[in-house]
């Protein structure tokens, strides 16, 4: 089975977000970058599927040269080879077109992504790629079992989950508990250095949105403390001051 896993290169979840250039650029100075947490679940499940039923795992990232350490980490976790499309990911449509083009050239049996990226949180790319390729898409996927050319999938819905069945190939946006995150071991890290990482230029520059500027939320005005033995004061504050009950 040939699996394509799409990974993002995103700020660590503890990062304090700031912007530069008049609030038009994310300030990456001093920021630690990671594989998107949901993409990491997708990758872990892809590597498990490869380990149990054979095949290959290719990772793809649309990003500048600075994303290569993140791509190498994915190779250390168990992907076989990687593709980097050398461009800033300007919007979901732009990214989806690059991934779809690579998918057209390689006929993957399965395309796994995260349910959403944790920078732009669009949750856009999986549905768009599937639409361009004329494939089904399922998201957010909590369980994924493959038997031959058929897949059984559990998809999270509000208040529970639903079980679905469909044929390969398709696109899935993944989340926990589809697999446990994998931590690269020494052997993986060594072998990742020599695994193929192909760099390609974007196929198109079309996009459907353009950034005007970024904004940060207004700071909280501070926390009002209430004595533990007078919870009724909290109740009245929520009623008369905050007016939320």
């Amino acid at each position: 089975m040939k699996i394509l896993v799409c990974i993002t290169h995103v700020p660590d979840t503890t990062t304090r977000i700031t912007f530069t250039d008049n609030n038009t650029k994310f300030n990456g100075a001093g920021v630690q970058f990671i594989i998107g947490p949901y993409d990491d679940y997708a990758l872990a499940r892809a590597v498990e599927l490869k380990e149990t039923s054979g095949g290959t795992v290719t990772v793809i990232n649309i990003g500048g040269p600075d994303t290569e350490p993140t791509i190498r980490k994915a190779l250390a976790i168990g992907a076989d080879d990687a593709i980097r499309i050398n461009a800033e990911p300007t919007d979901g449509w732009f990214v989806a077109q690059q991934i779809a083009e690579i998918a057209k050239q390689n006929n993957y049996d399965l395309i796994l992504m995260g349910r959403e990226s944790i920078d732009y949180n669009g949750g856009q790319v999986h549905g768009m790629v599937a639409e361009i390729l004329g494939m089904p898409s399922v998201s957010p996927v909590m369980q994924l079992e493959i038997n031959g050319t058929t897949a059984k999938v559990a998809r999270e819905i509000e208040g529970g989950k639903e079980y679905l069945e469909l044929s390969l190939p398709f696109v899935a946006g993944c989340q926990e508990p589809i697999a446990e995150w994998k931590i690269p071991n020494m052997r993986g890290i060594m072998s990742a250095r020599t695994k193929p990482l192909q760099v390609m230029e974007p196929f198109t520059h079309e996009q459907m949105t353009s950034l005007v500027n970024y904004e940060l939320p207004a700071a909280k005005s501070g926390c009002k403390m209430i004595a533990a033995d007078s919870p009724e004061l909290l109740v009245s504050a929520l009623k008369t001051e905050a007016k939320v009950i």
Partner: peptide, 11 residues
């Protein structure tokens, strides 16, 4: 964006 840590104005 950034899981509630910021906003983007998009055209």
């Amino acid at each position: 964006i950034f899981t509630g840590k910021a906003f983007a104005v998009n055209k």
